[in-house]
């Protein structure tokens, strides 16, 4: 399936300065693998040590958070759009 991955502004320097990248994939996980395979520098900003998606990084398939679908196993259809959206979190030391 050909799908489009929307790249948020802060991560565009690590994705050839593109606002979106087209990849071929059957699932959301495969699409992110294809993206980070093409642009390896994206990995450290999306994944924590151990390969899990960072807790503040959210992935949407069209308008739906994939955590509410089948997470990285969520199947894709031709023309789908995947968006990477951060939660903004922080705070002083305890």
């Amino acid at each position: 399936m050909a799908v489009k991955v929307m790249i948020p502004t802060p991560l565009r320097p690590y994705a050839g300065r593109q606002a979106s990248v087209s990849v071929e994939a059957q699932t959301v996980g495969e699409a992110l693998d294809a993206l980070t395979g093409q642009f390896a520098d994206l990995r450290r900003h999306l994944y924590a040590d151990g390969g899990r998606l960072r807790s503040f990084v959210n992935v949407y398939l069209n308008q739906e958070d994939v955590r509410n679908l089948q997470k990285d196993q969520t199947p894709l259809r031709d023309g789908d759009t995947i968006s990477i959206v951060p939660s903004i979190a922080g705070g002083r030391s305890c």
Binding site: P8, T9, P10, L11, P13, H45, R54, S55, F56, P86, S87, I88, A89, G90, G91, R92, S93
Partner: peptide
């Protein structure tokens, strides 16, 4: 804080 760093992006 360290928590800020863990939850930040460049740019």
């Amino acid at each position: 804080s360290e928590f800020d760093r863990e939850h930040a992006w460049p740019w």
